[in-house]
Computed example of a mutant assay.
Amino acid sequence: MALPFPLAEEPDEFSREAGRMMFANPVEFLKGVVAMSGLPPADRLEVCFAGRSNVGKSSLINALTNRKNLARASNTPGRTQEINYFTTQDGPYLVDLPGYGFAQAPVAVVAKWQALLKEYLSGRATLRRAFVLIDTRHGVKAVDEEILTLLDRAAVTFQVVMTKADKVGVKDREKAIEQVRGALAAHPAAYPEIIVTSSEKGDGIATLRAIIAGLA
C-alpha cells in the first residue's frame, strides 16, 4: 500500500531540463507590494512561497533561481513586510510572501502584513500553487496550521516543501516527514507529494524547479 503524501520523485530528464532552462534565464525583482491594490496585473500564472519566519524561504528562492541575493534574507526574523514579486522569462511570477508567526516588529505592523497575507491567499485568481515551507527540524506547528486551514478555505492547492533537511540526521528527518504526513491528512487542499530540500546542499532544488516549470 502506497504511503499517503509520498516524497516527490526525482524528475525525468525532460522535466529536469525544462526546470533548469526556466531558471537559467533571468529572474528579476519586479516590485514589493504592501496592499492588494499594488499587485501587478493578473496576466500570468503565479506560484507563491509561504512559511513562518526564519524557515529558510529567502535561501530557498535564491537556490531555486541560482541567484545569491535575489531574495534578501534577514538576520532578524519577521522583517519581510511586503509581498515581493519576481518575474521569470515566459514563466510564472514567483511570489515571496511575508513570514508568519514570530516577528520582531510592532504588533500593529505584524497585524497589518498578516492581514495582507491572508487577503492575498484568499483573493488572487491567478495563484496556481502555494508552496508552504516547513522546517525539517521542527515539523508542522500550530502557526502553520492556521495558514494551511486558510488555504483549505480559499481552495488554493498547496504543496509542502521541507527545508533545512541537511540540519538533522536520517532518523530525525524520517520522524519529521511522518509528522508532516499526519498533519497534511487533515487538509483537503494539500497536494499529495512532499518536497524535501536543502538550500545549502542543493537537495530537492531540481525537483522543485521541474514542478514549477510543469505548472507553467
Rank of each mutant, 00 (worst) to 15 (best):
E9V: 10
P40D: 04
G123A: 10
E119A: 15
E28H: 13
V55G: 00
K57A: 04
G19F: 01
A18I: 09
K141P: 10
K57Q: 10
Y85T: 02
F29A: 14
A108C: 08
P26K: 02
Q89I: 08
L133I: 08
E10N: 14
S59K: 01
V33T: 04
W113C: 02
L117F: 03
D96L: 01
G101N: 02
V132H: 03
M22Q: 04
M36F: 06
V34E: 11
Y85R: 01
N62Q: 03
M21G: 07
L39P: 01
R52G: 01
P106L: 08
S37K: 15
T88K: 12
N62T: 09
A130S: 06
P77I: 06
G139T: 04
T65V: 06
V140C: 02
D90G: 11
E46K: 12
A2T: 11
T65D: 07
L60M: 14
Y85P: 03
S74P: 00
C48Y: 08
L70P: 07
N54D: 07
L121W: 06
L64R: 07
K68Q: 14
T126V: 13
I134E: 05
I147D: 00
L3H: 03
E82S: 12
R20K: 14
S59E: 09
E145W: 09
M1T: 14
R72G: 00
S58N: 02
V95Y: 01
L3N: 09
A115L: 14
E10D: 15
G56W: 00
L70H: 09
P41I: 12
Q104L: 13
I83G: 07
T88P: 04
R72F: 05
P92L: 05
E28P: 06
E146T: 14
L7C: 07
Q81D: 04
T136A: 15
G56V: 04
L45Y: 12
R67M: 07
K118Y: 09
V143A: 09
S122L: 14
P26N: 05
L45T: 12
V132T: 01
K68I: 08
E28N: 13
A103G: 06
F5G: 06
G99I: 06
D12R: 00
S53R: 02
L133Y: 10
